[in-house]
Computed example of a mutant assay.
Amino acid sequence: MKVTVHVDGGARGNPGPAAAAAVVRDAASGAVLDEATELLGETTNNVAEYRALLLGLARAAEVGADEVEVINDSELIARQVNGEYKVKHEAMKALHAAALQALAGFRAWSLRSVPRAQNAGADALVNQALDAA
């Protein structure tokens, strides 16, 4: 089964209170299969973006996906995972490695970044989680 996963992470203050969110949809019908948020405590926006990616991949695996298209609004994370940029920051190297390991569990995968407006569902979940905290 192929799914589309919209992920977003955000930190208010960067670093600041942070959250991650994921929306998993059936790629064929667009039906929402799962939504999830995770409060991350105090961290940076980039760490939150990676944690959102990991959350989305875990939820995609849980619904039985074997192919995943990940959409986020972080060009940096997309380019690092796709091998276009090197990961220089030490704190992000472990998250990058974990993301690659999680992606390897799928038969096929892709990751691309879009403008925030095209990732509104995941963005709204991040803000809801932070507002409720």
Score class of each variant (00 low, 15 high):
32 V>R: 11
23 V>H: 08
19 A>D: 07
18 A>G: 10
27 A>Y: 01
32 V>Y: 05
5 V>K: 06
12 R>Y: 00
30 G>T: 14
9 G>E: 03
13 G>M: 00
12 R>S: 08
35 E>Y: 05
4 T>C: 11
28 A>L: 14
22 A>W: 01
34 D>E: 14
10 G>M: 03
32 V>C: 04
13 G>K: 00
4 T>A: 11
22 A>E: 06
16 G>A: 11
10 G>D: 05
30 G>Y: 04
8 D>R: 12
32 V>N: 04
20 A>R: 03
15 P>W: 03
34 D>A: 15
6 H>A: 13
22 A>T: 09
15 P>H: 11
9 G>R: 02
31 A>K: 13
8 D>N: 14
7 V>T: 15
14 N>Q: 08
26 D>R: 10
24 V>C: 13
32 V>I: 15
26 D>S: 10
34 D>S: 13
7 V>Q: 03
33 L>K: 09
29 S>A: 07
30 G>H: 10
18 A>R: 03
33 L>N: 09
8 D>L: 10
35 E>M: 08
31 A>V: 13
23 V>G: 08
8 D>W: 06
4 T>L: 13
8 D>M: 12
30 G>V: 14
37 T>M: 06
37 T>K: 02
21 A>Y: 01
11 A>S: 15
21 A>K: 02
18 A>K: 03
33 L>M: 11
18 A>T: 09
35 E>T: 15
9 G>V: 10
23 V>C: 07
8 D>Y: 09
22 A>M: 05
24 V>N: 14
17 P>W: 00
32 V>G: 05
31 A>P: 00
21 A>T: 12
32 V>T: 14
14 N>M: 07
33 L>R: 13
37 T>F: 02
20 A>W: 00
36 A>L: 08
31 A>W: 01
24 V>R: 14
5 V>G: 06
18 A>M: 05
6 H>G: 05
4 T>G: 00
32 V>M: 06
31 A>G: 04
15 P>A: 11
7 V>H: 01
10 G>E: 03
13 G>S: 04
10 G>V: 07
7 V>C: 12
11 A>C: 09
22 A>F: 02
37 T>H: 03
22 A>K: 02
17 P>Y: 00
19 A>M: 04
27 A>C: 10
13 G>Y: 00
14 N>I: 08
28 A>K: 15
19 A>N: 07
17 P>D: 12
27 A>H: 08
30 G>D: 14
11 A>Q: 05
15 P>Y: 04
21 A>D: 04
12 R>F: 00
35 E>S: 13
24 V>G: 13
26 D>L: 10
16 G>H: 07
35 E>D: 03
24 V>Q: 14
17 P>G: 07
12 R>I: 12
16 G>N: 10
31 A>Y: 01
29 S>E: 06
33 L>A: 09
36 A>K: 07
22 A>I: 10
5 V>T: 12
28 A>P: 00
14 N>A: 08
6 H>C: 08
37 T>Q: 06
8 D>H: 11
27 A>N: 11
7 V>P: 02
11 A>T: 07
13 G>E: 02
29 S>H: 04
